[in-house]
Amino acid sequence: MSLLALRVLEHVHGHLGWLTVIALVHPAILLRRPARRAPLAALLATLLVTLTASLGAATYPSYRTLLKQALFKETPTIGWMFERKEHLAIGVLAFAWVGLVAHLWAPRLEGEARVRLATLAWRAYAIAATFAALVAGIGTLVAVTTSF
């Protein structure tokens, strides 16, 4: 992949990252009441998380070969922050999907089980949104320090 393509991909990934935070906060707010239904918001937020994570995974091998060593030499603190961001991003992806599965399947249950699954969906989106905000913040910090 050319440097220009990597730079474009990195910028798109960064901007989508912040959009993902907003998209995840939306169901995290909407679903705080267990009776509330928001399947489209949940679906779109989860698909956006998946797209953003896919772009990040596509650029990660190039980051390792082109930037990682230099980043750790110049600013090891930022380098370790980037590693933290990658770990938390795994959680964002998994917990967004947990939220979607729980939200879509909650109406099929009855009574207390339905409320508990709806609450679980809200918790999953709240955790995913919190992790995503950390990931996007750290990503921005890294991007102002080094870039393709």
Binding site: R84, H87, A94, A113, R116, L117
Partner: peptide, 28 residues
């Protein structure tokens, strides 16, 4: 046991989130 599965689902969300956050913090 659907009740046990529900309890496991609720607990697994919290445990995995705490585990990942702790790992990212202390063992990046």
């Amino acid at each position: 046991s659907p009740a046990a599965a529900m309890r496991l689902a609720e607990a697994s969300l919290i445990v995995s989130a705490v585990l990942l956050a702790a790992q990212a913090l202390v063992a990046p």
